[in-house]
């Protein structure tokens, strides 16, 4: 298993937000983390990348325990994080944003280059020197993903990539996720949009107020997933 999470608990102050999660992500797999607003999807991702410190539980990545390590160390091990709010550096141009994400290539994997990323997201290619603050939401989302890929991650945490985007851009995002998967990149995808998840994910985990209430193959989800979400 590439990512193994056991009994993960996270608190904000006194509030116990994640109340013991167990799930895994296999090499090359796309796992959808599905849940309503406030279910704890983003909290899960932040604790994996090291921006939040878990209060209990284990997080293993390629056999190494990474729980509680500094974010930059976790990122260098090969986990990429695309936050929900995108967090583009608005003063920096597209190329400069990409530069911040750049890390050395990893063995046995083709490195991401600016050219390859511009091929994946042709919109970005038309605005290499535009400041991040002057881009549309969809463009920022593309840039956020591209910036993370510059680190050549083997696992990408993708937090609600379809949120607030027009259907056309959502389709582009889905295509990009599939392209990543075909490159062998594993993806942990947080989503409320089950349609989007259904189009790209292999398996799903349904999260409700910090608990996992269902997990299984994506194919088994339809109907059941909606039922959980509408609870």
């Amino acid at each position: 298993m590439m990512l193994e999470i056991e009994a993960l608990q996270v608190r904000y102050g006194r509030a116990l937000i994640l109340q013991g999660l167990d799930f895994t992500v296999a090499e090359g797999e796309v796992l959808a983390l599905i849940g309503r607003n406030g279910a704890g999807k983003s909290t899960t991702m932040k604790s994996i990348i090291g921006l939040l410190r878990p209060s209990q539980g284990r997080i293993h990545f390629n056999g190494q325990d990474i729980a509680g390590r500094a974010a930059f160390e976790i990122a260098r091990l090969g986990i990429g994080y695309v936050p929900e709010e995108r967090r583009i550096f608005t003063d920096l141009t597209v190329l400069e944003n990409l530069e911040v994400g750049r890390q050395p290539p990893r063995q046995g994997r083709p490195a991401w280059t600016i050219e390859r990323l511009f091929a994946l997201f042709p919109n970005l290619a038309t605005m290499p020197n535009r400041p991040g603050g002057q881009m549309s939401g969809g463009e920022q989302q593309m840039l956020a993903i591209a910036r993370t890929l510059m680190g050549n991650p083997s696992l990408v945490l993708l937090d609600e990539p379809s949120e607030g985007l027009s259907p056309l851009i959502v389709q582009q995002m889905a295509a990009a996720v599939r392209a990543l998967k075909s490159e062998g990149v594993s993806i942990l995808l947080a989503e409320q949009n089950t349609n989007f998840a259904a189009g790209v994910a292999d398996r799903a985990v349904i999260l409700q107020t910090g608990h996992i209430v269902w997990q299984g193959s994506m194919a088994a989800l339809p109907g059941e997933g909606e039922a959980y979400l509408s609870l």
């Binding site: 090291g50 930059f72 936050p83 550096f89 003063d91 911040v100």
Partner: peptide
């Protein structure tokens, strides 16, 4: 320079810079 770019990025959002693998 790369260093300068990282510094400007960190001025805006240190945690994100760190999540991208930079030892802040």
């Amino acid at each position: 320079t790369r260093w300068g770019t990282l510094v400007r990025a960190a001025t805006q959002d240190r945690d994100m810079v760190s999540a991208l693998g930079v030892d802040q």
